[in-house]
Design a protein around this nucleic acid. Structure first.
Length: 238
DNA sequence: CTCCAGTCTC
DNA sequence: GAGACCGGAG
């Protein structure tokens, strides 16, 4: 008998840990969270969309270097559509993936020129746009339209994997299960803040390479920190 | 050498 | 489900 993902997420133990995690992340974010121009309140949907494409598989600090100049040079979908592809590519070069991003920009500019409502409001429509996948669709829904969507990127996946060292779900159930956890984590008040907190926390503390477990305020309840603090075997005395 | 607010193609 | 895309930072 295998228990479903829903059972796991809704287990009192797990729900309580999610709630605690959420609180810790928010408090950490208040003091150590990062500040980026595309997070500023009142950003135009266009500017948010540009940022989300730029951020795909690219460090936020890198994007921050190019972003202001890019928005200044191409302040609207119209200017973006009219820009010579070569100029656009040159501006994106230092970020990497420059061909994809430049093409995505111009395709979006073309598509949205027709679409009078601006950025689509539904996931289906968003994912129909070239260059917009599940993550970017969530990001646009969350940032532009204020929906409670989890920004389940590499950071959030890593954090959840470590914090809940979930048993035996490496198979097909993993994606589904991860999504459930992410959705519960960011649901409710201050959803966007929690999302940003996770991204920043993943970049600064719960890193891929060398996680800062010693100085991490989650360590008391993080499975990853706990298991590495007490190595499974002690081959010392030998 | 790995990793980065992923997505598309085969 | 792999590989490609891509330059730069650690």
């Amino acid at each position: 008998m295998k228990k479903t993902e829903e059972t796991y997420v809704h287990a009192p133990e797990v729900a309580e840990r999610l709630s605690w995690l959420r609180g810790q992340l928010l408090s950490w974010f208040g003091g150590k969270g990062r500040s980026f121009p595309w997070r500023d309140h009142g950003r135009a949907p266009y500017e948010v969309a540009i940022a989300e494409i730029l951020l795909q598989r690219t460090t936020a600090t890198g994007v921050a270097r190019v972003y202001p100049g890019l928005i200044e040079r191409y302040p609207s979908w119209e200017t973006l559509a009219q820009a010579p592809l070569e100029d656009l590519e040159r501006a994106l070069r230092p970020l990497g993936l420059w061909r994809q991003k430049a093409q995505a920009f111009q395709r979006l500019a073309q598509s949205l020129k027709e679409h009078e409502g601006g950025i689509p409001r539904s996931r289906a429509e968003l994912e129909g746009l070239r260059g917009v996948g599940p993550y970017t669709a969530s990001a646009l829904l969350a940032v532009v339209y204020g929906q409670d969507e989890p920004l389940l990127d590499v950071n959030m996946a890593r954090l959840l994997d470590r914090f809940f060292e979930r048993p035996e779900d490496a198979g097909v159930g993993r994606d589904r299960s991860l999504n459930q956890l992410a959705r519960h984590l960011v649901s409710g008040e201050r959803s966007l803040q929690v999302n940003w907190a996770v991204l920043d926390f993943g970049a600064l503390v719960c890193k891929a390479r060398r996680p800062r477990c010693q100085e991490c305020q989650l360590q008391s309840r993080c499975q990853h920190a706990l298991s590495r603090a007490t190595p499974t075997s002690n081959t010392l005395s030998g």
